[in-house]
Simulated assay, not measured.
Amino acid sequence: MSVLPLVFTSGWASGINAYAVVLLLGIFGRTGLTDEVPAALQRTDVLIAAAVLFLCEAVADKIPYVDSIWDGVHTVVRPLTGAVIGALLAGQSGSLSDITAGAVGGTTALASHFVKAGTRMAINTSPEPFTNVAMSIAEDLGVAGLVTLAIFYPVPAAIIAGSLLVVGVAIVVFLWSRIRRFLRRRAQRREEKRLAAEAREVTGAPPR
């Protein structure tokens, strides 16, 4: 059977939480629940690193504005992880070329990453922190559920992941006006800090 549905779903999940995907796939492989997971993802050092980074993301992802900074840092990490996982899965199964699988995994991860980052920007326009926490938990549960489903039922999981990606893009487009306000407000704060720093340098006043 083609590994493409699993590559697509893991790519979508990597765009949301790459470390969770690596951790889950590694655990599934180590416990013998599937033969689809390559040995590289089952290594102890890889699992430990993924677990530590997953815990870091679990905290950062629930703090307003910090989550957007974290997303910005992972604009390269998540698509790259999706591409690497896709290529490794293809090499393990032999039913799809590494280049094709890497392209599918990386592109899907990039798309879902932008949906996640855009949604968080819109959420951060609200001062309360509870929406961030709820969204983060929902994303983590979604990633865990879909990756698990993809191991045993890859085609239904890929269909769900594709549907979530389309819905997510539509939501980001709808919320784009809020996202633009968030970006303008953040740029304004940076400009105010820069002007304040310049004023302190001119007057010799101590930093506040």
Rank of each mutant, 00 (worst) to 15 (best):
F114N: 06
A199V: 07
A134G: 05
I171W: 11
A158I: 01
V104Q: 05
F174C: 02
V147C: 14
Q92S: 12
A138N: 14
A197K: 08
G91I: 12
R194L: 14
I160Q: 06
A196K: 07
G86S: 03
L164P: 07
L110T: 03
L141Y: 11
L89R: 02
A196Y: 05
L96E: 10
R184F: 02
S97T: 13
T119Q: 08
I171E: 09
L96C: 10
A101W: 13
F114H: 09
R185V: 04
G82A: 03
L80A: 04
G91F: 03
S126D: 07
L80P: 01
G118W: 06
A150W: 04
G142V: 12
A199R: 05
A157V: 11
A134H: 05
A122S: 15
E198Q: 12
I159Y: 03
V166L: 09
R189N: 07
V84W: 08
V202K: 07
V202E: 13
R189K: 15
A117D: 10
V172T: 08
I151F: 13
L88C: 06
A161D: 04
S136G: 11
T108Q: 02
L183V: 08
L89M: 07
A197T: 10
P154V: 03
V133N: 12
R181S: 02
G118R: 06
E139V: 15
G86F: 02
R184H: 01
G118I: 07
G118M: 05
S95H: 05
G162L: 09
L146E: 15
F114V: 11
A111H: 03
T148M: 13
K116C: 09
A134P: 06
R200F: 05
L183W: 00
I151Y: 08
